[in-house]
Simulated assay, not measured.
Amino acid sequence: MDSWFLAVFFVGFGLPFVRVQKGRRLLGLMKASTATGTLCCLLGWWQVVFAFPDQACPDFDYMRPVVHFDRYESGVFPPWATCYWDDGQQKELVSGWVNPLLFTCTAVLTGCLVTLTVVAYRRCRNGQTR
């Protein structure tokens, strides 16, 4: 699941929400970042919930000395799941692009909300209703 194909697909899924009409760009960008971030978060949660440690983190019987599975740690926000072995090796089970894309979408959404708030405040202060 470390392919960037899904990341490009998720961003492509969010692009139709962006409108190029004047005055609606911020709303379209908010919809796109929300849709992309939601899909990305759901995929990350899916990878955490269905990361079965007994299958994803096997013992290495073929190595000398034998390396045994030590522990499994996970969390849901941001989505992460990691396997640890007794020789110090570790393996991330959530794709490497999930969290950067999730936080980028969150930053874009926050920026749009702040911009809309400032624009609404300025319009209210100047007496414009629309």
Rank of each mutant, 00 (worst) to 15 (best):
M1W: 15
M1R: 11
D2R: 13
L6I: 15
L6G: 15
A7G: 02
V8H: 07
V8W: 09
F10W: 12
F10N: 06
F10K: 01
V11E: 05
V11W: 00
G12E: 03
F13K: 01
F13R: 03
L15C: 04
P16Q: 00
P16D: 00
P16K: 08
F17N: 02
F17C: 12
V18F: 10
R19K: 13
G23D: 00
R24Q: 12
L26P: 04
L27S: 08
L27R: 12
L27N: 09
G28A: 01
G28D: 02
L29A: 07
M30Q: 13
M30H: 12
K31T: 06
T34H: 07
T34E: 03
A35V: 12
T36N: 07
G37V: 04
G37M: 06
G37T: 04
T38P: 05
L39R: 14
C40Y: 14
C41W: 15
G44S: 05
W45L: 15
W45D: 11
W45P: 10
W46Y: 15
Q47A: 03
Q47L: 07
V49F: 15
F50H: 15
F50V: 08
F52D: 14
D54H: 15
D54V: 15
Q55P: 04
C57P: 08
P58L: 04
D59G: 03
F60I: 03
F60V: 04
F60E: 05
D61V: 11
D61F: 13
M63V: 14
V66Y: 15
V67P: 04
V67E: 12
H68F: 13
F69Q: 06
D70G: 09
R71C: 07
E73R: 13
E73S: 14
S74M: 10
G75T: 05
F77M: 09
P78R: 04
P78N: 01
P78I: 00
P79V: 05
P79K: 07
W80L: 07
W80V: 00
A81G: 08
C83G: 10
C83D: 06
Y84M: 01
W85E: 00
W85K: 01
W85V: 00
D87M: 05
D87N: 14
G88T: 10
G88E: 05
G88M: 09
Q89G: 04
Q89E: 08
Q90V: 05
Q90C: 00
Q90H: 11
K91Y: 06
E92V: 09
L93F: 03
V94T: 03
S95E: 02
W97F: 12
W97K: 11
V98F: 03
N99W: 08
P100H: 02
P100D: 05
P100T: 03
L102A: 07
T106A: 12
L109A: 02
L109E: 00
C112Q: 02
L113N: 01
V114H: 06
T115S: 12
T115Y: 12
L116Q: 13
L116R: 14
L116V: 05
V119E: 13
V119Y: 10
A120T: 07
A120C: 13
A120S: 14
C124E: 10
N126I: 03
G127H: 08
G127R: 07
T129M: 11
R130M: 09
